[in-house]
Design a protein around this nucleic acid. Structure first.
Lengths: 211, 211
DNA sequence: GTCTATAGATAGATAGAC
DNA sequence: GTCTATCTATCTATAGAC
C-alpha cells in the first residue's frame, strides 16, 4: 500500500526530506503514477497523519476499556501509557510519522489534522481527571503539566528507541508508569557521604544514541 | 547576527522549510551575501546545532555546580531539570532549534554535531548515576530509561510551550521534578467508588494546543 | 493504472561588478 | 560586504500515450 510506504519514509526521514519520487520508487512505480491515487503530496501526508492519530487513539481506548469501568486508576494509566507506546513504536509507522513530522508540515495540513489530535488529547485529560476525581492523584498536582510531560516522555521515544531484542517497549511503559506513580527517589533517607574520588567518573565506552 | 536569525527560523519552521532566502531576508540582505560569511547552508546549521548543545550544557553544569559537591541529589536533579528547560524555552533559539531539527538535518551534519550531544547526554548519566550511588534512587530503577524519559518530557516541551504571562518555565520544572521525585499518585488509598454518570464527561470547550 | 515527457517553481550555490 | 545575474539540480504537478 502506498500510504504504508509513505508513512514509513515520513517517519524515517521527515516530510520535506521525503520526495514523491522517493515514495514512488519504494512503491515500484514512477512519480506521476502517484497522482492517479492522490491529488497531491499534501493529501498523502494528511491521510498519514490522520491515520496515525486514529491508530493510537483506538489502541489506547481499547486497552483502557478492556479493564472495565471500575479498574484502579493506576491500572488505567498504565494501560494508556502501554498502548500509546505500543502504537508509537511497534504497531505501524503512521503514529510515529505523525509525532515526528506534525510540526513540519504546511500550516493548513496541520490545521486539517488538528481536530483528531485534539480529541485524543482530550481523552488523556479525561483519564487523568477521572483518576483525580477518584482521589488517586496527589492534591495540588498540575494535571495539564502531568499530561504534557507524560505525553512528551512517550512521544520523544521515537527519537531514541530502536527495536532490539531484550529492549522491550513494555519495559519502557513499566518504567514510565512507575515514574508517574511513585517516582524514583528514596525519601527520608540518610544520604551516604559522597565517596572521595581522584578522578571524575568511569569514562567507560558508551554507544551513540539519541538524544 | 546571522546565526541568531537562522536559529530562530530553524526553531520556528524547521530545517528544510527554512530557505537561505528566508534567512537572508530577515537579516536584511540578499541570499548571495550569506556566502561571504558561510560556505553553505549546512555550515550554518552545523554552527546553530553545536551552539544549541553548548548553551544547554553550560547552563546545566553551571546551575548544578553552583550547589556545591555535597548538595542533596534531589536538589541537583532539580537544578539540572530547571536549567535544561530554561535553556530550551527561554534563553535563546539555539537549543530549541537543535531539539526540533536535529532529526531532520542531513546525516553527515548530524554526525558532525553528535559528539557534543553525546557529551551532554553523558553528563546526565553522571548526575543520575551519582544520585544512585549515594542511595537516593530506588534500587531496581532503570537509569537509562529514567534519563531518556526525563529528557523526553523536557525536550517535547518545545512542541507545546508558548511563553505566556502566568505560565512560567519554573513551574514546569517544579512539576517534572516532583514527578521524578515521588510521582503523583496517592498510594494505599481506599479509592472512592466511581460516581454514577448518565453522560460521559463534561464536553467543556478546550483551547487548541499541541500535542 | 502506469508510463514518458515536460512544464513551472524554487532551492542551493557561483561569478563577477561595485 | 553586499549586490545583480545566473547556473544547475530537484521538486511538485500536469498532459497525454499506452
Amino acid at each position: 500500500m502506498i500510504l504504508d510506504h509513505a508513512a514509513r519514509l515520513f517517519r524515517q526521514r521527515g516530510y520535506a526530506e521525503t520526495s514523491l519520487r522517493d515514495i514512488a520508487t519504494v512503491c515500484g512505480m514512477k512519480t506521476a503514477s502517484l497522482y492517479y491515487h492522490f491529488a497531491s503530496k499534501e493529501e498523502i501526508v494528511t491521510e498519514v497523519l490522520n491515520t496515525g492519530v486514529a491508530t493510537v487513539s483506538e489502541e489506547a481506548r481499547r486497552r483502557v476499556d478492556l479493564l472495565g469501568p471500575d479498574a484502579a486508576p493506576a491500572e488505567r494509566v498504565h494501560a494508556a501509557i502501554s498502548a500509546h507506546l505500543h502504537a508509537l513504536l511497534e504497531q505501524d509507522d503512521y503514529t510515529g510519522a505523525n509525532i515526528r513530522i506534525f510540526g513540519h508540515v504546511p500550516p493548513h495540513v496541520r490545521a486539517a489534522t488538528m481536530q483528531s489530535r485534539e480529541q485524543y488529547e482530550q481523552w488523556w485529560r479525561d483519564v487523568l481527571a477521572d483518576a483525580a476525581e477518584r482521589g488517586a492523584i496527589r492534591p495540588g498536582t498540575d494535571l495539564a503539566h502531568l499530561r504534557l510531560l507524560l505525553l512528551g516522555a512517550m512521544n520523544w521515544s521515537v527519537e531514541w528507541h530502536t527495536p532490539r531484542p531484550g529492549k522491550s517497549v513494555a519495559a519502557i511503559a513499566a518504567s514510565l508508569t512507575a515514574l508517574a506513580l511513585h517516582g524514583v527517589f528514596v525519601e527520608g533517607l540518610k544520604l551516604r557521604k559522597r565517596p572521595l574520588r581522584t578522578k571524575t567518573r568511569k569514562p567507560k565506552s558508551w554507544k551513540p544514541s539519541l538524544p
